[in-house]
Structures are given as structure tokens and as C-alpha cells.
Amino acid sequence: MGILLNEQSRVLVQGITGREGSFHARACKDYGTQLVAGVTPGRGGQLFDDVVPVFDSVEEAVDATQANVSLIFVPPPFAPDAIAESVDAGIPLIACITEGIPVHDMVGLYRYVQANPVRLIGPNCPGMINPGAHCKVGIMPGNIHMPGRVGVVSRSGTLTYEAVGQLTGQGIGQSSCVGIGGDPIIGSSFIDILRLYNDDPDTDLVVFIGEIGGNMEQQAAEFIGSAEFTKPVCSLIVGATAPSGKRMGHAGAIITGESATAESKIRSLERAGARIIPTPADIGETVAAALVESGLGA
């Protein structure tokens, strides 16, 4: 089963005629995703790759195609509008890939998203994938994934691919993989995704990859350590060697106090009972060992 996506996911791409939007829309479709519509204002009536109808608005696209997932590749100045448009059209699941949306724009938008029956992944994220359902809503390379029972959640893109590559290399398949995004204000937190994995009968173990900066990892650790959360977790925190006060690419990844350091996050996760992955090279092996130890095999 996996989380967020399934065989019923009908995906529309906002910004489908742009350079990145068209490249990734095609890659999602090739992976097996039901790509039902594209939206580019002013390009309504065209066909993308001869088959996917393009609409002027999300509302029209939803009316015509019953799309229920939106994938956004709109440039930063227009992305907040694109997110709000999808929320307004009643889309229940949105992934916003766009990097560089001003934080000030996310403040109000975050409240709007919270007040509506919608889940937003991102912005500044790689999206999500459910290999078992052949459904990919994001920019991850599909071919490194394999269906299975380990859930992956991370803030970042290529580091998630690294983790997935190591898992697949060990013959460990994934129920779902989600990158929640590297910005300071994002639609879904680690806890939101961990809760979904906790409730997913087809996820046995969760790989949780965090970073320096903020204290979302500590909050996640508290949830992992609570009675409510029942699944084994393997966790990697990157950025241990980053200098304090410097922004390491992700706007969110900046050490501004004790709780933001890798060391403090690792301590919290250890206390919560998570198995710590010692270095980024050890993801696959650590998970394999954890599966054996939990009696789940590898």
C-alpha cells in the first residue's frame, strides 16, 4: 500500500510546459504514474506529448480529469499562487518542487494549507514515490527504487536517492519515499510523515534522514520515542561537520543554537530508541541489520 500515493492517484502537473516541468512530467509518466493533466495559464487546449491535456487553470483540469494530486514546477515568484490555486480547487495532495520561494510568502500560505483539507509536501523538495503502485510524483530517478516494506523520509533530494540506492543495493525494497523539503517553512513535518508510516500496514521499518538546523528532528525523535509510534527506525543526521552560522545550501540547514547541531539531534534520536546510522555510507547495512534484528528479514 505505502503512503500518500496509490493506484488511484491521478496526477496533474502545474508548470507542465516549462523546462523542468516537461522533463519531469515525462519521467513520472514513463515510470507508470497516471499523468492526467497539465496546467499552464494561456496554454489551455494544447496537448502535452500528444496525449496529456493542458488546461488554463487547476479548476478546469480537476473538472475534466478528476486529478487528485498536484505536482508543482512553477518558478518561485508564482509558486505560492500555484499552491493556493490547487488548494482552492480541492486537490487533497500537493507536492511543490520549486526551490527559492521567499519564506515570508510561506507564512500565510502555511496557515491557508493548514485550514484546508489538503496535505502539502515541500516546497523545495524532491516529492514522493510509491514503487509498489508505480506512482512517482517528484523528481527522483525512478529506476533506483524497488517495491518493498521500508519507508524513507528525508528533507532532501539526492541524499534520499543515496539512501534508496543503498537500500535497493541490499535488496531492501521501499513502501514509499518522501522528501519533505529543505526550507524553514514546509507543508508537512517529519512527524506528519512518520504518523502516516506508523499507520501503514505495509511499512515495517522507517529510515529517517535529518539535517542540522532547526529542531524538527528533535520533535520527530519525541514522537518516535512515544508509545504511539510502534515501528523500528534507522536514522541518519547529516551536517555534523558543518560550521555554525553558515547556511549549507538548504535555507533550513543553518546551525543557530545548540539544539540545531547534529550531535544534539543524534542524542535525541538515540534516547527515542532509533538505531543511529553512523555515516552516510552505512545506510543500507544498518537497515539490513535492523531488519534482521527485528525479525523482519532483509
Partner: peptide, 12 residues
């Protein structure tokens, strides 16, 4: 390429 992998690479 990628901030998370870049941080991971520093750690490695």
C-alpha cells in the same frame, strides 16, 4: 549536487 548529499559528503 543537492544540499543534503553535499552535507553527507562532508561527513564522509
Amino acid at each position: 549536487n543537492g544540499a543534503g548529499l553535499a552535507m553527507a559528503t562532508l561527513d564522509v
